[in-house]
Amino acid sequence: MAKIIVNGEAKEVQLPLTLSELIKQNNVSQPEMVSVQVNEDFVDRTEWPDIQIKEGDAVDFLYFMGGGM
């Protein structure tokens, strides 16, 4: 098990794990509506399947919010 931080909260995950798999595990129902940062760096969605999660990684899901009116 590896300790990582997802959206600011500590979590334990089984490695190996790709970023795409982590997104699925976190029940992101609409991956199109989320932007992802790993260790505060933006990760393009085309790279999600290739990114391997490592012990200590901090992953943030930034949700698109289009409302305002």
Binding site: L62, F64, M65
Partner: peptide, 9 residues
């Protein structure tokens, strides 16, 4: 600014 349901950013 963005808002949706119960969330804001």
């Amino acid at each position: 600014g963005g808002i949706l349901r119960f969330n804001g950013q």
